[in-house]
Amino acid sequence: MSTQHDPTIVALINGRTVGRGEVLAWENRRIDAAAKKLGIDAPAAGGTEARREAFLSTKLALGSSEIESRLSRDIHWAERVSKVGARVSSRRRRSITDLQVAEGSAAHFAEWFDTCSRDSDERAMLRACPDHFVIRTGTDGRQEVIETTGGSPMAARFYVDYSETSSLVTPPDPNFPHQIAGVARAADGTPVGGVRHQFRDLDKGFQARLTVEFPLPSAGMMITQHRWHLACEFSNWITAAAKA
């Protein structure tokens, strides 16, 4: 299933309908912030699409080991904070964004995403959001993620196991037959959150209900800003899947 043009995608963020242009503007600003986080010059000013590709090339050229080294202090402190938060309570705060896509199907997108994750498609994973620094799937099937979540001042590392949903607090919705769900754990195995992304076909196109669970003490600003992160990464993934 391929298309010669980008699908029309409308997001619902913080109770407000948001067009693709606003999400692209958010992404453009985050390119500057992510480049600063890595200690490098941001791509030259211009259109979001061109800057996205330039920044992707820079991240790939740096390589995962160098990126991890540059973010090591962030990773250390972010893990300590998330583990403390997880121990405070098993309850979670949820960041939720809905996307309505004017064409395509829920099954096609879910299959495309599963394939990219399983095959550890680094280009597809990193391209989707400036705040994605390392995303790779290990031999154990877990997906290692180093990213800046929401409005956090620190980049964090966690591991998503898409074969396990035991500690998720978000129940599956039977009205959404396609799911991408898994527990997120710290390096020592402590559950620190998780994802339950759900998809269903509409009369025309499909709907995505995107949910990330954070430890209960997480700041409200972090939850709010991560809704934009979700809109950015999944809009870009959906666009890539439509062209695949």
Rank of each mutant, 00 (worst) to 15 (best):
A240V: 08
A45Q: 15
V212E: 00
I238A: 01
D32W: 01
Y162M: 02
A107W: 06
I135G: 00
D32S: 07
A219Q: 14
D119Y: 03
A124D: 03
S95F: 08
D203S: 11
G150P: 02
A50E: 15
N175L: 10
L210Q: 12
T148G: 08
F214S: 01
G63R: 07
A61F: 04
I13P: 01
T139M: 07
F55T: 00
L210M: 13
Q100L: 11
F214D: 03
A242S: 14
R127M: 03
L99R: 08
S105T: 14
N14M: 07
A186L: 09
A102W: 03
I40M: 13
T137V: 10
V195R: 05
P177V: 00
G193R: 09
D41P: 02
E111K: 12
C232L: 05
Q198K: 09
M125R: 06
L56A: 03
H132Y: 03
T148P: 01
R92N: 06
T48E: 14
W112P: 00
Q225A: 14
D114E: 14
S120E: 10
A54E: 08
R93K: 15
I67V: 15
R91T: 11
D6Y: 12
A34P: 03
S82L: 12
S105P: 03
E68A: 10
F158K: 02
P153T: 10
F214L: 12
K59Q: 07
Q225M: 14
I13K: 06
T97K: 02
S152V: 06
E79N: 09
G150D: 07
A61E: 12
G193M: 15
